[in-house]
Design a protein around this nucleic acid. Sequence first.
DNA 1: CGCAGTCTTGAATTCTTTCAAGGTCAGTGG
DNA 2: CCACTGACCTTGAAAGAATTCAAGACTGCG
Lengths: 251, 251
Amino acid sequence: MTGKEKLLKIEALKVSCQNCSLADLCLPHSMETDEVNQLDGILKRQQPYQPGQHLFHAGDRSSSIFAVRSGALKSYCITEDGDEQVLGFALPGELVGLDGLAGETFSSTCIALGTSSVCELPFIQLEELCHSLPGLQKQMMRLLGKEITSDQHLLMLLGQRSAEERLASFLLSLSSRYMLRGLSANEFNLPMSRQDIGNYLGLAIETVSRLFAHFQEEKLLTVNRKQIRILDQARLKSMVDGCLGNISESA
Amino acid sequence: MTGKEKLLKIEALKVSCQNCSLADLCLPHSMETDEVNQLDGILKRQQPYQPGQHLFHAGDRSSSIFAVRSGALKSYCITEDGDEQVLGFALPGELVGLDGLAGETFSSTCIALGTSSVCELPFIQLEELCHSLPGLQKQMMRLLGKEITSDQHLLMLLGQRSAEERLASFLLSLSSRYMLRGLSANEFNLPMSRQDIGNYLGLAIETVSRLFAHFQEEKLLTVNRKQIRILDQARLKSMVDGCLGNISESA
DNA sequence: CGCAGTCTTGAATTCTTTCAAGGTCAGTGG
DNA sequence: CCACTGACCTTGAAAGAATTCAAGACTGCG
């Protein structure tokens, strides 16, 4: 590879990663060419996953975290009596598999909702790399801390909020996450089913459906199947005021 | 300091730390004498906190994590409309302040429930130490991952469990955490008020009170003010079966 | 076209909360 | 020593929110 080719490759990587959570992790910290190159070296890019295909199952030996490049993923657990509990959704630029850091295996299962492509980062190598790249380790910690903070927000949501406040908060979360990645904050598609939304928010599917109808009556938004268009973001926000922020990225 | 004195000091530290979460972090990983010494060097031991005294407030600049040595702590947030949301309780041997890793400041507030003593670990130094101690960084990651996993469990609890299942799960969590530190699994004191329990579990205080009465009628346990004695751990467990584990340590 | 899965809508039921009142306990001061 | 106070906890009854049950509608697909 010539010097010029190498440079191009690095530039391409920067572009491909710039909408990614991992950008937080490395790019803004004045990574040198060689450092980006090192990170690139451990990235495994994979074939896209089809809807319903699993990235990993709870109990699988954990060896990597995954960054979503496109599509959407769902993390969930199966309770002993066979129920599913949705833990979160990952949109492009977000990470999944962080719970695998806790031990030898994943504690959650991750499934593609739509056709999705991901980058895999084997964390053994990520760990080694942390030793040589001064900022990377700190950023990993921050990312994990962020995950904890975001779970705390969700806890607050489920702990004391009404069904209405939960759904409003959920929609605002999606909105801001799409915006963060340069997509429209007021018009987007729900990658998940009503079933998944209800499960995630601790609500019956019928309640979710009724709330969408109610929000529509109130002229807060329009909803057509999966397509959401937020009409009155301000009023939606006022519904969750006091809810200390929205749901942010989740595992 | 003579060689012998130094050795004694290290042994004392090992003893004082062995019931601590940080033991997970260092001791079982064949830490050498010098390594324990290094860790000891960054530990700041503090005066005990009195009930109602704060370790840190949300918004404070975060620079350390804290390990509880005795007593009990409560983490919480205040929502914009002034409500409190309890995020978790820390018992001896557990850590608080991990959410501070997310950014420059803490996102939660931490208060002593009873007289409590803690070890403070400035994480700038912890971070530096990670570079020299091979196992420490990995253990930090694991600890953070554990925190995430534990939040996920709580999420599942609040998401779809009945009031009865929530309280049962809460009590079993306390039980197993006390047992882990070598205390009785079936007889312990609740360090927090009914108010705090209700808030944490997303229940009204009256509901908590009624459930204690109900559990007592069912001969599952006896409760006298703060004192709990679990009579039928097995049946209590069967109530939360399918709840995928209990609540574990929280921020 | 017709089937299967997903979503919506209505009515009855259940669980939990809210409101209200009373009880217990520890500390305080007469 | 005992009544008083305030914080915390318990208990009952009424009200409300969300779920469950049930039925029907829409969509995409073979």
